[in-house]
Amino acid sequence: MKILSLMTVFLVGAALIYGTLDMPKWGDPQSPASTHVSPYYLNHSLEDTATPNVVTSVLADYRGYDTFGETVVIFTAGMACILLLKAGRKRRGNGHV
């Protein structure tokens, strides 16, 4: 069973690595992202958002919905921490009493 799991992991890993071969090279100026999206952001960020920092305007404006998801993920992580650690403490306390 262990060998089977290991085989599955290696097969999936090999498939994923094979899949990355089709992707554009790192920092390739001819890749679709560099020819369509990035120039638009760099050219229009200041007039669209009046924000000199392009990273901030992409993070919070053009990709604002994504950042909202990130914030919710952090919030959920905090809530999960409370639920796991506080629930465990209460149960232990009751056990002693």
């Binding site: 669209d48 958002t49 924000t51 305007s57 919070a60 604002g64 914030t71 905090g78 921490c81 650690l85």
Partner: peptide, 29 residues
């Protein structure tokens, strides 16, 4: 354009409050 700039600032303040409070919560827990 300026409204977008202010909107980004408002959103960043919300993120900062959430991150600060969650970090404190996790640390306390």
């Amino acid at each position: 354009a300026e409204a977008r700039s202010l909107g980004i600032l408002g959103v960043e303040i919300g993120v900062a409050l959430a991150v600060m409070a969650v970090m404190c919560t996790v640390f306390f827990a």
